[in-house]
Amino acid sequence: MSYLYTENLTKVYPNGVKAVSSLDLEVQRGDVYGLIGPNGAGKTTTIRILTGILNPTEGEVHFDGNPRLDLNSTGYLPEGASFYRFMKVKEYLSWTCSLYDVGGVPDRVERSLDIVGLRDLGDRSLDELSKGQKQRVGIAQSIVHDPDILILDEPTSGLDPIGKEKILSIIQDLTREGKTILTSSHILPELSRVCSSVGIIKEGEMVLQGSMKQLKKKFSRAKVEVGFESVVEGFEADVEKLEYVRDVERLEGEELRYVITVNDDQAAGSELPRYLLDSGNALTYLDLNRATLEDIFMETMEGERS
C-alpha cells in the first residue's frame, strides 16, 4: 500500500470552478514525487487538500494507514511563503517547532539552520533576508520538527540559478536522509534531477503517473542529431526504412545536418551509429538526446490534446 495516496479527490470551489477532478495520487515511502502540470492545473489545490488547508468536495486522502495526513509528521512549504516580519530567524524556527509535539527545540533549530546553510543568519530579522534566503528559511521551518514527509509547493519559484541550485541540493540531501518528499513545479529539468517518480496533472486530472524509470521506459524515444561531410544518395529514405526509426528531419539552413527520431533509445545508442558509419556516409557529428521529463510532459500534454 502507498505511503500517501488519494482516492477520487475532487475539489469544486464555491464559484463553480472544478480545480481537481477524481485525482488518484500515489506516493511511496522514501519517494521524491514530482507533481507536474502547467499553471492552473490544480497542483496547489491538490497540495492544500493534502495538508488539510482545504477540504475536498469529494474523495479521500490516506496517509500511512490513516484517513488524513498527520500534520505532526508533515513539513510544508507553500508557494511564495510569507513569514512574520517581526521575528528573527531562530525565533521563528523555535516558535514553529513549539507548535509540534517535539522536544529539544534549540538543537532542532540549529540543525535545520545547518541543513539549509543559514547558521550565520540565525539572529537576523526575517524582514532583512533576500528572497533566496527566505526560501531556505522556508525549508528550515518545514524540517525543524524532523517530519517524515515534506510537501514543497514550487520551492524554486522566482529564485536565481544559484538559489535554485541550493534548494535542489538541499532536497537531494533530505532524500538521502530518507524523507518522503512531494514537490510541485512546472520547471521540469529541475524536477527530473531530484524526482524518483512523477505525476502529470492537467486541468485537475492525473493524466500520467509512475516512477521515472517506468516513464522513461514507456517513452523510450530518443533524438539523434547527426552531421555529415557527405551522404550517399537516398540517405533519408534509407534511414527512414530502419524499423526503429520513426522520423528523419533535415535541419533548415544547416548543410547535411539531420535530426533522427528513434523509437528505442537502445538502438539510438548502438545500432543507429553503427549503421550510419557502415553505410558509406562521412559522419562528422553525432549527438544523442534521450527522452527527458520535458519530452514526456510535452508528449503527454499533446496526446491529451489530440
Binding site: R48, T51, G52, I53, L71, N72, T74, Y76, P78, G80, A81, S82, F83, Y84, R85, T96, L99, Y100, D101, Q141
Partner: peptide, 13 residues
C-alpha cells in the same frame, strides 16, 4: 493579507 495564514493552517493547531 500578509500571506502567513496558509502556513499557520498547515500546523498541528
Amino acid at each position: 493579507e500578509s500571506g502567513t495564514l496558509e502556513l499557520l493552517l498547515a500546523r498541528p493547531v
